[in-house]
Design a protein around this nucleic acid. Sequence first.
DNA 1: ACCCGCGTCTCATATCTTGAGAAACTGATG
DNA 2: CATCAGTTTCTCAAGATATGAGACGCGGGT
Lengths: 270, 270
Amino acid sequence: MRDAAPQGTYKVQALDRAFAVLDLLAESEVPLGLAQVASSLQLHKSTAHRFLMVLERHHMVERTNGGKFRLGLRLFDFGNRAIEQYDLRDRAQPHLRRLVAETEETAHLCILEQARVIYIDKIEPARSVRMITRIGSSNPVHCTSVGKAILAFLPEERITDILRRTRFERFTPRTIATPEALRAEIEKTRRRGYAVDDEELEEGLRCIAVPLLDAQRQPVAAISVSGPSFRVTAQKLPSIANHLLQCVRGISIDMGYTSAGRGNRAAWTA
Amino acid sequence: MRDAAPQGTYKVQALDRAFAVLDLLAESEVPLGLAQVASSLQLHKSTAHRFLMVLERHHMVERTNGGKFRLGLRLFDFGNRAIEQYDLRDRAQPHLRRLVAETEETAHLCILEQARVIYIDKIEPARSVRMITRIGSSNPVHCTSVGKAILAFLPEERITDILRRTRFERFTPRTIATPEALRAEIEKTRRRGYAVDDEELEEGLRCIAVPLLDAQRQPVAAISVSGPSFRVTAQKLPSIANHLLQCVRGISIDMGYTSAGRGNRAAWTA
DNA sequence: ACCCGCGTCTCATATCTTGAGAAACTGATG
DNA sequence: CATCAGTTTCTCAAGATATGAGACGCGGGT
């Protein structure tokens, strides 16, 4: 919360308030009434009401039968356009499907946003315990395989910056809780070529990830395979890593990131 | 544009402008510079600048390397939370996958929003011509199978209302272009139990859809199978419709919409 | 070196939002 | 069916807040 206004703070009260309303509704599992919104945000009834009406006109919120408010579908549209511009998800999806078919575990596609990783896509195997991750949600870098995979291949200054902004929250006994320990882990990741999250975010959950590098060899995303520790065992890691590496290779080609040259892209887009 | 302010128009200029900015960026395929935004929206540079800075602080927009603006990832988060509350997509997805496996054509999941249908999910078969639909986008009811499927099972007054608000835009020679013709088509749909779009939105594209009814027998969504006309032939329609019906039955059970009674739901949620 | 377009920033002005409060509604409860 | 508590909806005067003219600085092109 304290990172909101570093310096040059441009302010438009109305916008801050409107987004506070959207945040509130996003956070809440259930639709909220006008009075609840107003009191939660310390807005006066009439102000909150006006905002909600305007937001509703724009389909940013909508009303349930009971007259309560929840997020509107225009946001869904915006959101999909937002990632579409990255163009990564669509390209990656078929490759991820293959990966899931091969490993029979859940695959994720993530990108780095600020100092956190955002889940862009998730593919689950036919039958498996449902993972709790929600597409669009984010996690810190220090406790995820995808975070570490991206971090490991970033230039030094970006790493420092991101570590500085990470709070190293502890989720399980194994969570890496200091910058130094994470540095060491990053080193390890870089050497072996893939990152591992060994029950560091959630007990019983093990993940492996590799970064996706663009034409300039910069990590733009990471893909991971996650599953219960008893299935994703230590012995299997190298084999799964192999599937992951094959998968990123495929995506790289699709995205036109291959260093092989630009001329032969046409062959793939047919 | 003229449908913006019917009556009780609550106004917050700042919000309208901010959303105009987001709309503009959403519409544009490429990131836009400050000057472009300002002139497109007839805002003065400094105003546009302030808005963009605030939007950026909220991650509603972000800057590319070149300093241009595009939609931000917070919207992606919001958008996913927005549909999550519907809870429909996650439940339906496995069923849709099976449907795609059976028919080997693209499947869509749509809901009705105002007088249009919004694409909530899309599953594509292993190898097929990529369909152009984007998740989150919307189409009018009169030229889509999903639109007609939902319409056909709505109460009379809602049908009238929706038809009144539809502009009956023509997309192909076969597009149903009058309310009367659509009425007849709806009648037909109701009798046969599934809706067909026979190249009415796009030449060479044929779709079949059935509605998903809730516990009160009200349509809340529709699922469709779409493919090139030469593969989705007239003879195949009844067979595909059968797969569709089985699919909605599965989803209905998952959602707890079965009229069989409420007691046995536990058996399915295990 | 010069110009032109673009992004950034400041500040006095008046426009637009604000919020108190009244009214209308909803639906419990006696 | 009257009453009441808790809502949502609406109005309007006051003044806080967003506005936009304009100045500055940067970088890329000619």
